[in-house]
Simulated assay, not measured.
Amino acid sequence: MDARGRRKASLPPDFAGGEVEIRRGDLSRVLYEASRDTTEYLFGDHITSLTETPGGVDVTFKHAPARTFDLVIGADGMHSGVRALAFGEEARFSRFMGAYFASFSAGPLEREGELVTYNAPGRFVSAGLLVFRTEQLLDYDRQDVEVQKRIVAGAYTGAGWRTGEIIEAMLAAPDFYLDSISQIRMEQFTDGRVALLGDAGHGATIGGMGTGLGIVGAYVLAGELAAAGGDHRVAFPRYQELMRPYAWGSMGNAGKFLAPRGKRGILLRNQMVKLMSCGPVIKMMGRMDMKVASNITLPDYEG
């Protein structure tokens, strides 16, 4: 929409949808319920140190007693604590893409089956998702949600359209989340008895197929460990060999598309959207997306 609420361009659901869609929270519940009978879960805790020994990895936790494990798999996201302990600080591997996003529940402002969006220069607005451009990383406490909400509200001052209503919904939302649009790119995401999985080893915020890559990576890692009889010295290199080109080929920068910097950029993007809404173009893009999403030969692991 433009600032007066007039429709400027639109895309069919095929653009961002697949044959099956599932919310991340539902996926987490499904995976937890399928594994809880054979898996020990420690909630509300995190690893504070890792020490590799010839026979395993000595692990200390913030709350639970120290333990020794055969392997440690860091599947803890873009800001992985395991990666920081085993491979070094995040800044070594993270590339900031010039934008931030905030997601939240917007209640009655959200339209069932339709995502209505608006752009001011450098800012993308929708009920439940905000994207804004900035030249450098912001300095804030990742645990202080109220400060983060004020930062986002300040970035949208004078944006126009229904932005004020959406910001009010954001300020009241109980599930607010703010993060940079960044990429995690590592030449090696295994080291000794430690391996990284999903966004921890190859993340790309928004448009990086993060959930899908995490699931595929888990399948490959588990399969390779099983095929190698649990020998990480054989399984980890094979896991990395299969996953790295697949993960790197899926990385993009959604910030440029969602939040063009100036009015001319918004106009050009809207013209692109109109072109993309044509049936043949949508089909072509769908084929390209499927090529990226399936650009890995998955071994059929036995057992």
Rank of each mutant, 00 (worst) to 15 (best):
H46Q: 10
T48E: 02
A64Y: 06
I47E: 00
G56R: 02
D26A: 14
G44N: 12
G17S: 15
V30G: 04
G74R: 01
P13G: 07
T51A: 13
G77R: 03
A34S: 13
F69I: 14
R95A: 11
P65D: 08
L31S: 14
L11M: 07
D37T: 14
E89I: 06
M78Y: 02
G17N: 12
A84G: 05
G81R: 01
V30A: 11
G55E: 11
L27S: 08
I47L: 06
G98E: 04
T53F: 00
H63W: 04
G98Q: 07
D14Q: 15
G18C: 10
T48L: 08
E40D: 15
R29P: 00
H79K: 11
P54C: 09
D58R: 13
F69D: 04
T39F: 03
S105G: 14
L11C: 08
S49C: 07
M97C: 14
E52Q: 14
A99K: 12
E33V: 08
L27T: 09
G25A: 14
G81D: 01
T68W: 00
G77D: 05
T38V: 14
F96D: 08
G44Q: 03
G56H: 03
L31W: 02
R29A: 05
A66P: 13
G74W: 00
L85Y: 01
T51W: 02
L50W: 02
R36G: 02
H46S: 13
A75W: 01
V59M: 06
L27V: 12
Y41H: 11
P12C: 13
F87W: 00
L85T: 03
V59S: 05
P12D: 03
E90C: 04
E90P: 06
E33G: 03
A66T: 14
A84L: 10
F87R: 00
P13R: 15
F87H: 00
K62D: 00
F87Y: 03
D58F: 01
L42G: 10
I47G: 03
E90M: 09
G25N: 09
V30T: 13
T48D: 01
F104E: 04
D45T: 07
R67C: 06
A16N: 13
S35L: 10
A16G: 13
V72F: 02
